[in-house]
Design a protein around this nucleic acid. Structure first.
Lengths: 188, 188
DNA sequence: GTCTATATCAAGATAGAC
DNA sequence: GTCTATCTTGATATAGAC
């Protein structure tokens, strides 16, 4: 892996663990095994590097989620597979956590990928709900947009509760709860 | 207000805005109109001050939520009132945001109030759901614990989505979505 | 209780040699 | 492309006077 690559990967890991405010250029360099000079040769500074890291994380997440939601099965089955997939819950969501970083929210180039990711995710889930409606799997009274927002929110909030508790249990409970509510809207 | 009080209030505001890692003693002092000496006279350091600030915020939130959920009305009506109450959505949740702060999670004295707040909140909401079941307002198949977790998670995740979007809209959608799912479990 | 002075180390970046 | 030296500012605290 090139030095440039190692810098991006190192930044991705640190942004996930400590956020933007909590991550220093020095730490990034040490983790990447690169010197000051290398970092400032490949990137104009911390912000530039963070932007590359966030974009990559966003792209990866999007691809992974899309693959999972595009699989076979009913709408509820695919949503269930997505919510219940293997996760390192206590690490939280690498994109969602950036939302609490005042400097990420304040800088448009850093916030843009975060904004795009979640707006895409809500729309993607809404599309799955719509498919369920079209196929007659779900009660016609279910609203795609707000239901999709509730599902994504339950997931993101699940991470918050799990980190507060120090255990993944509340995450699993939240997922179970939202899926039970959704399952009750299934047409048998 | 005493200098000590001003220091605590200043810290509360900054923890909400910038988190623990992003808040410096100097900023706290300036905002409180207090000097270095005052701060280190009343508190042993940043951590000690943060602990006092977090505890107070947690206590206030708990009291406010309890008052709202103890009011009149059916279970679903009270949950609706709680979720739809006036909020400055884009500022996020002052307790939930601490969950993304690695140093808060790592220090037991700082994490404890956060942990207690959410475990209390989930239990409090579960109790409201149980009341709804006892009174025959809700379908007997509704599980109190997981439903409560889903509701709190939808709320916390709603903040995440709103901050990512830069508008309160996704928060409102998530709330609408979860309430619609819950409302469908009402016994008529 | 509050103030100023001082200390140490890290953050974030620039300069210029190799 | 990478390295070391240097710079400025801020973070976090201690010391001791008033």
């Amino acid at each position: 892996m090139s030095t440039r690559e190692r810098l991006v990967e190192s930044t991705r890991a640190l942004l996930w663990e400590r956020g933007y405010v909590g991550t220093s250029p020095k730490t990034i360099q040490q983790r990447a095994g690169a010197g000051q000079g290398s970092m400032y040769h490949h990137f104009t500074g911390k912000e530039d590097l963070a932007q590359a890291a966030i974009r990559r994380t966003a792209d990866e997440m999007r691809a992974a989620v899309d693959a999972q939601l595009s699989g076979p099965g009913t709408a509820v089955e695919r949503i269930t597979a997505y919510l219940r997939r293997e996760r390192d819950v206590l690490r939280g969501c690498p994109i969602g956590r950036l939302t609490q970083d005042p400097d990420v929210i304040a800088v448009p180039t850093l916030r843009a990928p975060v904004e795009e990711t979640f707006s895409w995710l809500r729309e993607r889930l809404a599309a799955v709900v719509r498919e369920g409606l079209d196929r007659g799997e779900l009660d016609a009274a279910v609203d795609p947009a707000s239901t999709a927002a509730a599902i994504v929110a339950a997931l993101q909030g699940g991470y918050v509760l799990a980190r507060a508790a120090g255990t993944p249990d509340p995450f699993d409970q939240a997922v179970t709860g939202i899926l039970a509510l959704l399952g009750a809207r299934t047409v048998h």
